[in-house]
Design a protein around this nucleic acid. Structure first.
Lengths: 198, 198
DNA sequence: ACAGTTAGAGACCGATCGGTTGCAATGTTT
DNA sequence: AAACATTGCAACCGATCGGTCTCTAACTGT
């Protein structure tokens, strides 16, 4: 996203638009090149903003990455919100599609980077708390969760998310479509069994 | 691991020891600093080998990383081999401990890096195939797997591995010990139920 | 309209990146 | 032991890294 070249705007508008362009470019760059290759030069080029312009709004690379991480968290959750009432299979297919989404790849780049970067980790933890709390809340409101006790539903939801996350990471290097479909079918059968018996 | 300074050795021994020191230092550096900060300078310093010495044995950084990845795959599998007959709970606790092992953190650094690095991905795929094939084979030989059909056992094993992998990644940023223990207990109950009914 | 403030461009900085080169040290062959 | 091959060190290379500085352009308050 390049900072758009419109006519007269207030300082606040200019500022917000530049920051948004930089955050957008950061997310896009991490998604396409990975955290490792997401340099400020590359991000600035994509955003159509100079280095000087960047540091007007962000104190450091970390500061920019944290702002991007917050936006990634927001968008990832937004993706989870888009499912209404659905069958068990539809819900599981949906959960899997969220794990496979581009935005989740960026989220995982950040999680992995945070493991060995104390400062990033400190800033990422509150975002992760917020994100997973909200995902759990959405899971509890789902049709599937109505049939079992809330504690179990919460546990099942996060476990499914972890499983599809793990699958998604491996899949970039080692896709196994047949196994993946069997895993989905197995999960559907399992949850239908649980739902039936109460 | 520094290249040890022993007395007289053959060329082959010198060469092998230097390469081993470099591979070891690469793994150690990725584990401690992450893929992003694992520079050749840092790796050489840890290995006690000069840049010139490194490039005598490896054509490029990628070449070294691939050699390290193969060693990581070997060690990760070795870690999986160390479980004999055990209860269902012991087997699941063990699977979880493998996901939480340092060597798996390095494996995930490499998987994530490979997503956006075509050349690394090409070299990592055969290692991943070998690793997961072997893990599945081990899972099929486990006591738990004796009670259900092989296809289901294979599926369950990889699904459990994915789940604990996903949990391990999140845990670096957002540990939730109570949830993690509940997840383990839930998995134990689930598998004991399956084992009982055939 | 004009002074003051904020946003942004772009040249620049020292440090470090992956990688190269020439030479000295070590080991091998005859 | 002399000739040769392999290994390893250290200085060095251009490119790029995150970050700074100065100056101009754009907006704001009076």
């Amino acid at each position: 996203m390049t900072a758009e070249a419109v006519g007269r705007r207030t300082q606040a508008e200019r500022s917000a638009s530049t920051q948004a362009a930089l955050v957008e470019a950061t997310i896009e760059t991490i998604q396409e090149l990975g955290y490792h290759r997401a340099s400020l030069g590359e991000i600035c080029a994509r955003a159509g903003v100079s280095k000087g312009g960047l540091f007007r709004h962000f104190d450091s690379r970390l500061d920019l990455v944290v702002a991007a991480a917050q936006e990634v968290g927001r968008r990832h959750l937004e993706g989870f919100r888009s499912l209404g009432p659905a069958t068990i299979e539809e819900q599981l297919v949906f959960a899997r599609s969220r794990a496979r989404a581009d935005i989740n790849a960026v989220w995982f780049e950040l999680l992995i980077a945070a493991r060995t970067d104390e400062h990033l980790r400190e800033q990422l933890t509150p975002v992760a708390i917020w994100l997973y709390d909200n995902i759990e809340e959405l899971a509890l409101a789902s049709t599937l969760a109505q049939k079992v006790e809330p504690g179990l539903a919460r546990l099942a939801a996060t476990s499914v998310v972890h499983m599809f996350d793990g699958e998604a990471v491996i899949r970039a290097v080692l896709p196994r479509p047949a196994d993946e479909e069997a895993r989905l079918a197995g999960a559907v059968a399992l949850f239908e069994g649980v739902a039936d018996q109460g």
